[in-house]
């Protein structure tokens, strides 16, 4: 018995694609202009158009947290927002948190506690942790674990991630 089926019967292609326009994003304190169509996500804008590849794509569906960036100080999944929607917002990526020469305290703590292995989820973890610190809602270990649960680490570095965050959380600001 054989039946037939057709994949993608989604109707004819759109005649005209949405035009490319200029979008201005303020990233890590610098205004960047890019020519994109509305369908470009903030994540793809960073990685493919601005060469800011520190922000990672781990699922592209808001299910892993690798793409976490800070928008106006709040952590979000950059894969689930359009770049055009973030015009005028203040975007901070991992590249804006610190550099190899001048590491952010969280970046140093992640190294010290070996809070990563393959490193792919790490920028998202660190951006997420940076926001967690400013949110001020996580005080106990259990709360850190819960409020870091939007960032999956398949290497399983969670205990070290929590230790790194606790160290920064419990270090009085100089």
């Amino acid at each position: 018995m054989s039946t037939s089926t057709t994949q993608a019967p989604l109707g004819p292609p759109a005649i005209a694609l949405a035009p490319v326009g200029t979008v201005t994003l303020k990233i890590n304190g610098v205004e960047r202009q890019l020519q994109i169509a509305p369908w470009t996500t903030l994540l793809d804008a960073l990685r493919e158009y601005l060469d800011l590849t520190g922000t990672k794509k781990g699922c592209d569906h808001g299910q892993c947290g690798a793409c976490t960036v800070l928008v106006d100080g709040k952590r979000i999944n950059s894969c689930l927002t359009l770049a055009v929607m973030k015009e005028g917002a203040d975007i901070t990526t991992i590249e804006g948190l610190g550099t190899e020469e001048k590491l952010h305290p969280l970046q140093q703590a992640f190294i010290d506690h070996d809070a990563f292995q393959c490193g792919y989820c790490t920028p998202g973890q660190i951006c997420s942790a940076a926001a967690l610190l400013t949110e001020g809602k996580a005080k106990t270990t259990a709360e850190i674990r819960e409020l870091m649960s939007g960032n999956i680490c398949r290497c399983g570095a969670y205990t070290n991630i929590v230790a790194a965050i606790e160290e920064v959380l419990n270090t009085p600001k100089a």
Binding site: G62, N77, L80, S128, G150
Partner: peptide, 9 residues
Amino acid sequence: GASPQLRNM
């Protein structure tokens, strides 16, 4: 529900 990132959005 969801995650801190998603709840922020």
